[in-house]
């Protein structure tokens, strides 16, 4: 890894930049467990609207199922559905999100390195 201190205008070296970036990502991820909105997202909300379950600007009913319009062509069960670890409550959610953040970081780092080595 290069020492970025001497390059044009860098105020932080690579290791510090990575560390601070990862800490920010982890803080956002953990905060999301406690603070993220549980309202349906834009696509789910649009789905409820076209099903007549809600008006454009009204709240969604608690029991409404955004996927009711779906075709049911394929079912896949993920290991940590909805970013949670079954039975572990909030701690499970935190573990799942931290795991995801680390996997994404390692994968992007790894794939980029491998691609560059092969080039």
């Amino acid at each position: 890894m290069t020492d970025a201190k001497n390059t044009n205008g860098a105020k932080m070296n690579d290791a510090t930049f990575i560390a601070i970036g990862l800490v920010i990502a982890l803080i956002i991820g953990v905060a999301a467990v406690f603070l993220a909105s549980g309202d349906p997202d834009g696509l789910e909300s649009a789905s409820l609207y076209v099903q007549g379950e809600k008006d454009l600007t009204s709240d969604a009913p608690e029991d409404a199922d955004p996927e009711a319009v779906g075709l049911g062509t394929f079912e896949y069960s993920s290991p940590f559905p909805d970013y949670s670890w079954e039975d572990l409550g909030k701690m499970g959610d935190i573990i799942a999100l931290v795991l995801g953040i680390v996997i994404v970081f390692v994968l992007i780092f790894g794939v980029s390195r491998i691609i560059k080595i092969k080039a």
Binding site: A25, I28, S37, A60
Partner: peptide
């Protein structure tokens, strides 16, 4: 490479952080 990896980790984290936008939607 460090930038793209950190950026990706941050994007993954923030995608889990739904913010309310009104209209019963986040």
């Amino acid at each position: 490479i460090p930038l793209i990896a950190v950026l990706a980790a941050g994007i993954f984290a923030i995608q889990a952080f739904n913010l309310p936008v009104g209209m019963g939607t986040s």
